[in-house]
Design a protein around this nucleic acid. Structure first.
Lengths: 182, 182
DNA sequence: ACCTGAACACCGTTCAAGT
DNA sequence: ACCTGAACACCGTTCAAGT
């Protein structure tokens, strides 16, 4: 509070005229962060693409504001914040319960991945003599690819559950009741 | 430090004879937490079961010590800590690179899920008049089922990638080069 | 080798007093 | 309506001095 006051050219105590306490201030920062989430308009590729883009944009936010994101990740979640992303799943055509399960799975993964990236991957997993030989895959993590790897694992798992006769990513056969029709 | 000192019947400054600073103390707590991770011996069911049990036990740890786990989740990760779980993947027969990708995906998900549980799910996603009608699926999350939902999504996605001609969980056909043979 | 008093440089927050 | 000085009850940490 004292430092923030200084930054604003004011004494720390003045802040209490505008904010109840420090906790509320941090909460507000988190709120602003979440409001900044850009949910991309529907692209081609059905709900999968839409969901993938939404969570990529989630990760982008975490990368842009790692400190605030860490606050966010360990703070009780306001329902409004969750709704932003939940609506993507619903809007993509998922029923209530599957949408909820999917929402929790996808946001758990995304939050966990973002934190892992922020705090840094354990790069040098093997310190032994083979370290140099193994260096390439360990040293430089392709962050986008690593995130997509897990994200697509979950998304295609969801697709199979929701649409068991859909093809594996090849040109889709006619699906009896595709979730993409709202 | 002052409170801990009091708890130990000693002045705060005495702690600095045993620990460099507060940061190191918290780091030590995280270390102890991770050392407490019980990796279950191989059960039936191939690497999938082993991996599933390992990450369930990870979640169990987070539930048992939520405060320390939150510290863990936002702290740079020591390599020793990661090795504990990484070894399960390797021991389960995965090659280096797939094991790394799988490790990052699975632990991202598990850490993210654990945090979501700790800070509380946004239960009342819809506050409108339909809230009561929708209550059952929203009000009480079956936590174990929700965790397994996402975990199994990832695990079976991995299985498909590693063993494309394996069956969907039915009695497995002979696999050409099953990852279970180290 | 371990503990302590005193001190330093900080915190968040309240509140009566100012304008 | 907003800001401030003074004060309260805290922090983590250092260091010379004790045993």
């Amino acid at each position: 509070m004292r430092k923030l006051g200084r930054e604003l050219g004011v004494e720390a105590m003045s802040l209490y005229n505008h904010v109840p306490n420090k906790e509320a201030l941090l909460g507000g920062m988190v709120e602003v962060l979440i409001e900044g989430l850009e949910i991309p308009a529907a692209t081609s590729g059905g709900w999968e693409g839409k969901v993938r883009e939404a969570f990529r944009s989630y990760l982008k936010l975490a990368r842009a504001h790692p400190e605030v994101f860490q606050l966010f990740a360990t703070r009780p979640l306001g329902t409004g914040e969750a709704l932003r992303i939940f609506e993507v799943l619903r809007g993509a055509g998922l029923e209530l319960v599957p949408a909820l399960q999917a929402f929790r799975a996808l946001s758990s993964y995304t939050v966990g991945y973002a934190l892992a990236e922020i705090r840094g991957f354990p790069l040098e997993l093997e310190g032994g003599p083979r370290a140099l030989e193994l260096a390439p895959p360990l040293k430089e993590v392709d962050r986008d690819a690593q995130f997509d790897f897990g994200l697509d694992l979950i998304i295609s798992g969801l697709r199979q559950k929701l649409d068991p006769d859909g093809a594996q990513g090849d040109p889709p056969r006619r699906s009896r009741r595709g979730p993409e029709h709202q």
